[in-house]
Each structure stands twice: as structure tokens, then as C-alpha cells.
């Protein structure tokens, strides 16, 4: 994109300047995010491997179809879309905070950091609701000819293929690993969101205290922003692997 504006003829590797034209902290943030991408990648790929090894896997449109206060209405993907839009929007407010930081506008940075933090809290609230819904939503399941009531946990999965039993369709146990991977991966992502909120709160406090004005630049906001966008980026892939396909 704007790489066209790079001055020509610079000897990047001759010393005296950063060959990446960036500060040490920002380069290291990129490398941290890269290693984190491999951690999340490994989780999602192990999920894919296990899913590929089973003949049937719970259909996301039937697993993720609940919405708060909507009772038992079948609303596939509605709630997770809301969560996705919350996270995308908080990414936008974060990048606007970075933009205000470039302009050394403290009030603007404060405003957008508060909005970003609120977006993160809203996302975590949604995730808490979804987890509660799974962990406390008991469903009928046919186990060895008897009907039992199972919730979706890391050891139980009542979302297997349905069979005819005494004149009605009843689900059979599905792969127990479904819950294991779901809670592991969304939980690890939720923990990233949580730590992102903590980092953003610290950055907001430092902005208010005028630390960055004293320092003469708002680069810390940029680094916190990189982390926050990464969390959004991971959600894009969690959304793909768990909810869409």
C-alpha cells in the first residue's frame, strides 16, 4: 500500500537504524503475536483433526441457535453474529484511538479507549451467557436404551444423531470431544479478551495521567492496539471453525 512512499536507496541493514523501521517494542509485539497465532492455530488444527476423524459431528446451526430472552426459538447463528459485530466494532474504536494518538489528541484517545473497553466487556458478557446456556441446558439423550438428561460439558455431549425411540426422535450421545474443544478454544480466546481489557484499562489510566503526553508519543496505545486487533483476528477464525463450517 503506502510502501510506495519508502525513500529509495536506504541501506536498511548497514546499522544505525532499525531494519524494520520500527521500535524494538513493536517488533517484539509482532513476534509475540506470531507465536500466539501458532498456539491458536495448533488448537484449531487439533480440533479439525479430531473432527475429520469422526463420521458425524454436531451441526453448528442446531447447536448455536439460542438467543437471550428468546426462549426456545430456533435462531441459528444469531447470537454469535451479535458477538462478532461487537468485536469488529471494538476493533474499529481501537484503531480510532490509535489514530487520535498519532495526532496527540488526549481527549480523543480517552474517548475511544473507553468505547473499546466497553466493547470487550460486552463480548465477555455474551460469552458468559453462551457458556451458561450450554452448561445448564439439559437435553434428553438416549443412553443404552434409557433416557438421561445431559448438558453440554467437557465430558458429555447430548448432540449426537437422533434415533427413533418409543415413537419420537431422541438424540444419542455425540463425540464428547466437542465440548472439550469448544470450551478450551473459546475459553482461551475469552482469556485473551479479558487480558486485553486489563491492558486497555491500564493504557486508559496512563493516558489520563498524561504519561504519553510527557513521553511525547502514544506508541503504547499502538502496541495495545496490535494485541486487541489480534484478539479480533483470532475470533474471525474461531467463528469460522466452530460456528460457520
Amino acid at each position: 500500500m503506502e510502501t510506495a512512499t519508502v525513500p529509495t536507496g536506504i541501506k536498511w541493514w548497514n546499522g544505525g537504524r532499525s531494519p524494520f523501521n520500527t521500535s524494538y517494542g513493536k517488533v517484539m509485539m509482532w513476534y509475540f503475536l506470531m507465536s500466539d497465532a501458532f498456539t491458536f492455530g495448533a488448537f484449531l488444527i487439533s480440533y479439525g483433526t479430531v473432527r475429520f476423524s469422526y463420521n458425524s459431528w454436531p451441526d453448528p446451526n442446531h447447536v448455536f441457535n439460542a438467543f437471550p430472552f428468546a426462549g426456545h426459538a430456533h435462531l441459528p447463528l444469531a447470537f454469535v453474529s451479535l458477538m462478532t459485530f461487537i468485536l469488529i466494532f471494538s476493533s474499529v474504536t481501537m484503531v480510532l484511538a490509535v489514530h487520535e494518538g498519532h495526532k496527540m489528541n488526549r481527549k480523543g484517545v480517552e474517548k475511544y479507549m473507553i468505547l473499546t473497553i466497553l466493547g470487550g466487556i460486552a463480548f465477555l458478557g455474551c460469552q458468559a451467557w453462551e457458556w451458561t446456556h450450554f452448561l445448564t441446558g439439559y437435553k434428553e439423550v438416549l443412553v443404552d436404551g434409557k433416557i438421561e438428561h445431559w448438558a453440554t460439558t467437557i465430558s458429555h455431549n447430548a448432540l449426537g444423531p437422533a434415533v427413533m425411540h418409543e415413537g419420537r426422535m431422541i438424540a444419542t450421545p455425540g463425540p464428547a470431544l466437542f465440548g472439550g474443544f469448544f470450551f478450551e478454544i473459546t475459553g482461551f480466546h475469552g482469556f485473551h479478551v479479558f487480558s486485553g481489557i486489563i491492558i486497555n484499562i491500564i493504557m486508559l489510566a496512563k493516558t489520563r495521567l498524561g504519561h504519553f503526553d510527557k513521553r511525547g508519543h502514544y506508541e503504547m496505545i499502538e502496541k495495545a492496539g496490535l494485541y486487541w486487533h489480534f484478539v479480533d483476528l483470532v475470533w474471525v477464525f474461531v467463528f469460522l471453525c466452530f460456528y460457520l463450517i
Partner: peptide, 30 residues
Amino acid sequence: ITILTLAKAYYIIAVFMHLGDEIRNLIMTV
């Protein structure tokens, strides 16, 4: 859907994370 997701990832990284504005050396190392 997977290809659309990769497109979303590209926009987040290139524009929101400003990697598209960095010099080639940094882009390639990531």
C-alpha cells in the same frame, strides 16, 4: 466461507494493524 474469512483476516492485519503501511522487511518477517 473460508476464503471470505481469509479476506477478513487480510483487512484486519493490513489496515487495522497497519502492517500494510510498514516496510517490506517487517511485512516479510511476519
